[in-house]
Nucleic acid binder design. Structure first.
Length: 236
DNA sequence: AACAGGGTCAACCGCAGCTTC
DNA sequence: AGAAGCTGCGGTTGACCCTGT
């Protein structure tokens, strides 16, 4: 009747702060192999001293293969403005309308870019109060076009992507020869065998992000693009 | 060259809602 | 029915970077 309390019983202090490439490795590797079955229970078998919440956030906001990184387009700007006016700060709902963008990313982008642009432009403000969105759209377009791409620093993102790319490249050998992987697999299997009846139901279901979907063409493209990008960087 | 201030964004926190037992 | 666990959401924080002086 009483559920097994996993995290509360853990004596190991959970790590916080920025994720290392090694941690990214482990999370990607684990999800690739087992899919997403239970965030709060996967950190341990994945070899991570992180909370399930932290793992979920890292995956959803950064490691997920379908995330579109880079600058927001004018169209995306306009969509965010429009949706924010109609839906308010429901970032997840807004993110659902922008494939490849995360709620966190949109929220940050709103607070750091769009909000200021609107506040600095009375025309945009007046448009915000009326259904006539065209004025603000035009203003936004002019704002957007006024920002040269080269003015935005891509280095951190590229460096991070390069790191993740390296991480993922190494996964190939990881699966075949790594003892870490074996240990992870054993841990997971041990965990599965110890799991409760409820867990068994969980395991019979498709994972939220099934392992097999990594072989999808779009996902392959993602990693291929990262690889190409990495090659370009190293060739510079 | 060194410092201060501002901007950006990844990550954390607290809460609400849902599910399970 | 209610306690406990899990997930997802929005607000906030803090570290890092850039720019101006």
């Amino acid at each position: 009747m009483v559920r097994t309390i996993t995290q509360k019983c853990e004596k190991t202090p959970l790590k916080k702060g920025p994720w290392s490439p090694d941690e990214d490795h482990k999370l990607i590797a684990y999800i690739q192999r087992y899919g997403i079955w239970n965030w709060s229970r996967m950190p341990k078998p994945a070899g991570l001293a992180r909370s399930g919440k932290s793992c979920r956030l890292r995956w959803v906001n950064y490691l997920r293969p379908d995330i579109k990184r880079g600058n927001f387009s004018k169209e995306e700007d306009e969509t965010i403005i429009k949706l924010q006016q109609t839906m308010g700060n429901r970032w997840s709902a807004i993110a659902a309308k922008l494939p490849g963008r995360t709620d966190n990313e949109i929220k940050n982008y709103w607070h750091t870019h769009l909000k200021k642009r609107l506040n600095n432009d009375p025309k945009a403000n007046s448009a915000e109060k009326t259904p006539q969105l065209e004025t603000s759209r035009e203003n936004l377009s002019s704002f957007s076009s006024g920002i040269a791409d080269h003015e935005i620093d891509h280095k951190p993102q590229i460096a991070e992507q390069e790191s993740i790319c390296e991480a993922f490249g190494e996964l190939q050998s990881l699966w075949t020869e790594s003892q870490v992987t074996t240990a992870m697999a054993e841990d997971s299997e041990a965990m599965f065998t110890k799991s409760t009846a409820a867990d068994q139901v969980w395991l019979q279901q498709d994972p939220i992000f099934p392992c097999g979907s990594f072989s999808d063409a779009s996902i392959s493209d993602y990693w291929l693009n990262l690889s190409v990008q990495s090659d370009e960087i190293s060739g510079m």
